[in-house]
Amino acid sequence: MVGVQQWTGREASALRAALRMSTRAFAEHLGVALRTVAKWESLGVQTRPRPDTQAILDTALARADAAVQSRFEVMLSADRQNSARPADHETWTEDIERAVVCVSRQDFAFGSILLNRWLGRHDPHSLDDKGRYLYGRSLALVGDLHRDQGAILGPLSAHHSYLTARDMFTDLDIPRRVAQIDLCLAVVEEMSGRLEASARRYEQLAHDERLGPRDRARARLWVGTALSKEGNNAYATEVMTAATREFEMLGEPEDWSVAHQKLALAHRGAGELDQALHCIEVARTTGTVDSPMQRVRLDTAYGHILLSDAATRNDGLSVLDQAAQVARRYGLSHQLRSIEGIRGAQQG
């Protein structure tokens, strides 16, 4: 009788197909949630059922008749052989490029489809170096999608995807990609509230020669962001101002604009509202990227500054309401939590 040493989403999907059941019928047959079966289908070899579910799958396969077991073995064998072939690198690269656009526009649903169609199809250990590189790039982009959605910790999170991508780039000996993932992991640390640790990591990466000049400048800017969130606004403004000059020298207008947005919040924290309003106006009028995420960030920063002055408090609440509407529409849960935190602090 055919057996499975370790069930993954791929084997579970093959059993469902061999039984000729719909995902709903298969979930009922096993006694598991429909979303569990859907996860097996979408993530393939990337997901492994829990030990108790492994046993349920073992039982379902053992109780299947000979025809089902034969179909299962044929399907699984064909799927594994297909996974072992070199990937269609050109098509995969095109999908990665399309997914990058999805990340920039916060089109999370389509971006996930583009990436998971490859991640669920291939076992990374069966790919050539080019395929493994594309697998790592896809994982990193999945991390970006999770990060922007606010899913930063846990098994289906930015942190997990980034760590797996980092291991892959380390094995491939691509130091620049490893360092870029380290920068992403520092962002996750900051988003998780570990401000001191993230500031130290940013500071290290700001001098890391594995990174290019732009990434090092971004790390320096984010040192200031973490310091500002800790309340060290005076030093934060110094660090951010230096990063802003670097972006100007590098000819990076979008980063220069974003730096002014973050600098505005540091000035607000220091009680320097005139400087804060000047910087946020620069950010609002010079940005070259118009995405839902950036609109929410700009409006959140602007609203936060307006709330700091009793004379403009109502205007600030109105701007925050607009930002919250966009955040809800695009599923930007981390940004929405930030907005709610600002409102809560005002009410307190």
Rank of each mutant, 00 (worst) to 15 (best):
Gly3Asp: 13
Trp7Pro: 09
Gly9Asp: 08
Leu15Gln: 09
Ala18His: 09
Ala18Pro: 06
Leu19Glu: 04
Thr23His: 07
Thr23Lys: 10
Arg24Val: 01
Ala25Leu: 01
Leu30Phe: 05
Ala38Tyr: 02
Glu41Asn: 12
Pro49Ile: 15
Pro51Glu: 15
Thr53Tyr: 15
Thr53His: 15
Ala62Glu: 15
Ala64Gly: 11
Ala67His: 12
Val68Leu: 12
Leu76Val: 03
Arg80Phe: 07
Arg80Ser: 05
Ser83Val: 01
Ala87Asn: 07
Glu90Ile: 14
Glu90Gln: 11
Trp92Pro: 09
Val101Lys: 07
Val103Leu: 10
Arg105Ser: 05
Asp107Pro: 00
Gly120Pro: 12
Asp129Trp: 08
Lys130Ala: 06
Arg132Cys: 11
Leu134Glu: 01
Leu139Ala: 08
Val142Ile: 14
Arg147Met: 13
Gly150Lys: 09
Gly150Tyr: 11
Ala151Leu: 13
Leu153Ser: 12
His159Val: 03
Leu163Cys: 11
Asp167Thr: 10
Thr170Gly: 11
Asp171Leu: 05
Leu172Glu: 13
Ile174Pro: 13
Ile181Leu: 13
Leu185Phe: 03
Val187Met: 13
Val187Pro: 06
Glu190Ala: 15
Glu190Met: 15
Ser192Val: 09
Ala197Tyr: 07
Ala206Lys: 02
His207Gly: 00
Glu209Trp: 08
Arg210Ser: 02
Leu221Cys: 05
Ser228Leu: 04
Gly231Arg: 10
Thr237Asn: 02
Val239Cys: 05
Val239Tyr: 04
Thr244Val: 02
Glu246Thr: 14
Glu246Tyr: 13
Phe247Gly: 04
Leu250Glu: 11
Gly251Tyr: 06
Glu252Trp: 05
Pro253Arg: 04
Asp255Phe: 03
Val258Trp: 11
Ala259Met: 09
Gln261Lys: 07
Lys262Leu: 11
Leu265Pro: 03
His267Lys: 00
Gly271Cys: 05
Gly271Ser: 05
Gly271Leu: 04
Glu272Met: 02
Leu273Phe: 03
Asp274Gly: 09
Ala276Val: 01
His278Val: 02
Val282Cys: 01
Ala283Tyr: 01
Asp290Ser: 09
Asp299Arg: 05
Ile305His: 01
Ala310Gly: 11
Gly316Tyr: 03
Ala327Leu: 02
Gly331Asn: 07
Ser333Met: 05
Gln335Arg: 01
Gln335Ser: 01
Ile339Arg: 00
Arg343Cys: 06
Ala345Phe: 13
Gln346Tyr: 13
Gly348Lys: 15
